[in-house]
């Protein structure tokens, strides 16, 4: 073919990324391997959490059993349902769940290409930039979908409040971006290393721990009562800014190094 169609053209890798994204989406909608594993993982861990935190609810439940039905007030029921933690801890647990769920499913997109042997055809036809962008977009979409499903459910189950909605949503969005970008590049590494599963968690979780540290700190700020509104706003901007910059930095470094992972 003529040189002008070379994959180095800037417009070209974007188009390739779009193709790969649509291909992954189509295959995913057909097989639902990744979304099922991520979703199921999230929901079953949620169930585990509910079971494990029984002790935090037990007192109320026992008291309710002694009471005649008509005396039980809605407040008692609510208290029995919701564990008595701070909102920030609930947020922490939510992200721990999402984190493990992401690590259960997001490796799929790379590992599958590698295991099915389709990686050769892809390498012949695509530039590394296109592959990275496409896979990142797909993983982020998947993560957004799962977060969108799990979070309302989790909020209902544990009584976690959003607090300040715009900040809450920004936090969730920044969280998904940071988690998704980490999982994507680590999945690419783990897929090349073949040993995959265990390695993915081992090399990915330390990175994500730092991110969760920042995220939980931001959650603390979100749920803290502050008398000084200006200082609170500055702290919020600082925390959320830290979160977003983590995601952006990680994506930049990944974009820069991905070709060394992709090419052998």
């Amino acid at each position: 073919m003529k040189a002008s169609t070379g994959p180095n053209d800037a417009s070209n890798w974007m188009a390739q990324a779009r193709c790969l994204f649509l291909k992954d989406l189509r295959a995913e909608l057909r097989t639902r391997v990744a979304i099922n594993s991520v979703g199921l993982f999230a929901f079953s861990s949620l169930l585990l959490v509910a079971l494990a935190t029984r002790g935090l609810r037990e007192v109320m439940t026992l008291r309710m059993l002694d009471l005649p039905i008509d005396i039980i007030r809605p407040a008692d029921v609510t208290a029995a349902m919701f564990p008595a933690w701070s909102a920030a801890s609930k947020m922490g647990l939510l992200w721990t769940l999402l984190c493990f769920a992401a690590f259960a499913g997001l490796a799929h997109s790379f590992v599958h290409e590698e295991e099915a042997g389709t990686v050769t055809a892809l390498r012949l036809s695509m530039s590394p930039a296109g592959v990275y962008t496409g896979k990142l977009a797909f993983n982020l979409t998947l993560l957004f979908a799962v977060a969108l499903l799990v979070t309302p459910f989790y909020m209902g189950l544990t009584g976690m409040q959003a607090g300040n909605w715009p900040v809450f949503l920004t936090l969730m969005l920044a969280g998904c971006i940071g988690l998704g970008s980490t999982a994507t590049i680590v999945a690419a590494l783990a897929a090349k290393a073949r040993g995959s599963g265990a390695l993915f968690g081992a090399i990915g979780l330390p990175i994500i721990t730092v991110f969760l540290m920042l995220l939980l700190n931001a959650a603390n700020t979100l749920y803290s009562d502050s008398t000084d509104a200006a200082a609170h706003t500055i702290k919020t901007v600082q925390d959320v800014g830290g979160l977003i910059s983590f995601g952006i930095l990680l994506i930049s470094v990944s974009a820069f190094t991905f070709r060394f992972v992709w090419e052998e």
Binding site: I207, M213, L214, T257, F260, V261, E264
Partner: peptide
């Protein structure tokens, strides 16, 4: 492959490592 992948990992993990050194103590 070991050399390639671990070099990349070193660069990726640089992001959280730098956050730990510079951002965490400030935030």
């Amino acid at each position: 492959k070991r050399a390639n992948l671990s070099a990349v990992y070193c660069l990726i993990a640089l992001v959280p490592q730098q956050f730990l050194i510079w951002a965490v103590p400030r935030i």
